[in-house]
């Protein structure tokens, strides 16, 4: 059947009133129509246009990295972003935290029957804009539809592939006693933006999610200071969890100071109201870097010169400790430890 005839049987998708139905995931004509009118239009590139079940690409020399991340954030739209751009940023950042340059993304959608097509288009357009801005191509994808009540609007899984520049060896197990710990900016913005919209918590705030792709910042960092030991983006579980993970992986302890850790005053106020500790609240556009002491000031200057690192600070150092504790001097002047998160602070944050 040729293309023109196929099209003539189908009414165009109704972007105003239309909703996702089971046929959109069936692999039949309706699926093909959704791919063409929505995904192809938004992500347009040669790989997708070839309409194969896979994307073929040339492999550059050097070490490649892959990362995958599922996104179930609720609500789907929030101040500062939506599940679409979040699913692009989240995976790009996971790739970038190896010091890598992200090249390609794939995306899997699980749609709930009845989900408005207009919202879906908004989400896909936002993904496409985020990918374009990051100069990363979405080269393969998949869509499934589940019955009403079996999903929550949209879940998106993205996988990213990138390449690590020569001479860069970044890994969570490379923190060494004496290394300095740097943070790229304010913490807790994303978590507070999401929580402010939750039905049972609803409170007014002007905080927007910090969701952003960090590979540009990382690229300048590894270029100027190739000897960075660890990079990680403190998403779920916040800064506290990231520091504990690295301490555990590297078999070291950490001593940090509360005073230099930047927290927006609205985030502080919201955390106060909710009884939360900003150290445990999620971020989507921040990173932690660990590097040898002699290059720390230089790295700090490089980070601060980038718009996504303008508030960067050195927050502490790595120490020898076979218990792998993260200790913190409080702004009040005493000491406490910063432990792993107990339980779930708030589900479905990303």
């Amino acid at each position: 059947m040729d293309d023109t005839r196929k099209r003539s049987y189908l009414r165009p998708l109704d972007w105003r009133q239309g909703r996702v139905d089971m046929t959109h995931g069936s692999g039949g004509r309706a699926s093909a129509q959704l791919v063409e009118e929505l995904f192809l239009r938004a992500f347009d590139n040669d790989w997708l246009r070839s309409l194969n079940d896979q994307a073929c690409f040339l492999v550059s020399s050097g070490r490649m990295v892959a990362a995958t991340d599922s996104h179930v954030v609720s609500p789907l739209f929030f101040p500062g972003g939506d599940i679409g751009c979040l699913s692009v940023h989240g995976t790009i950042n996971d790739v970038a935290m190896a010091g890598a340059k992200p090249l390609y993304l794939t995306a899997g959608f699980i749609l709930e029957e009845g989900f408005p097509l207009s919202d879906l288009r908004r989400i896909v357009d936002s993904m496409a804009a985020a990918a374009r801005e990051a100069d990363v191509a979405v080269i393969a994808g998949d869509t499934k539809v589940v019955e009403q009540g079996k999903g929550d609007g949209v879940f998106i899984t993205t996988t990213g592939i990138g390449v690590v520049p020569e001479g860069v060896h970044i890994s969570g197990d490379r923190a060494r006693p004496g290394d300095r710990i740097l943070l790229s900016g304010t913490i807790g913005d994303h978590g507070v933006a999401i929580m402010s919209l939750r039905e049972d918590l609803r409170f007014g705030t002007t905080v927007a999610s910090d969701t952003a792709a960090l590979h540009g910042l990382v690229a300048t960092m590894v270029e100027m200071v190739p000897d960075i030991h660890c990079l990680r983006d403190p998403t779920r579980g916040g800064l506290a969890t990231t520091l504990n993970e690295i301490a555990q992986q590297s078999g070291v302890g950490m001593r940090i100071r509360e005073a230099p850790i930047p927290v927006l005053s609205q985030v502080k106020a919201a955390c106060e109201f909710l009884g939360l500790d900003p150290l445990y609240v999620a971020n989507e556009g921040k990173l932690v870097a660990i590097c040898p002491p002699e290059v720390a000031e230089r790295l700090l200057a490089v980070m601060r010169a980038h718009p996504l690192g303008a508030d960067a600070a050195i927050i502490g150092e790595v120490v020898d400790d076979n218990h792998h504790f993260v200790e913190m001097e409080t702004a009040f002047g005493g000491w406490r430890m910063v432990d792993w998160l107990t339980g779930e602070q708030l589900p479905r944050i990303c």
Binding site: F332, G333, R336
Partner: peptide
Amino acid sequence: VSRYGIQDL
């Protein structure tokens, strides 16, 4: 007391 490390002061 624990969160701010008051005992240290």
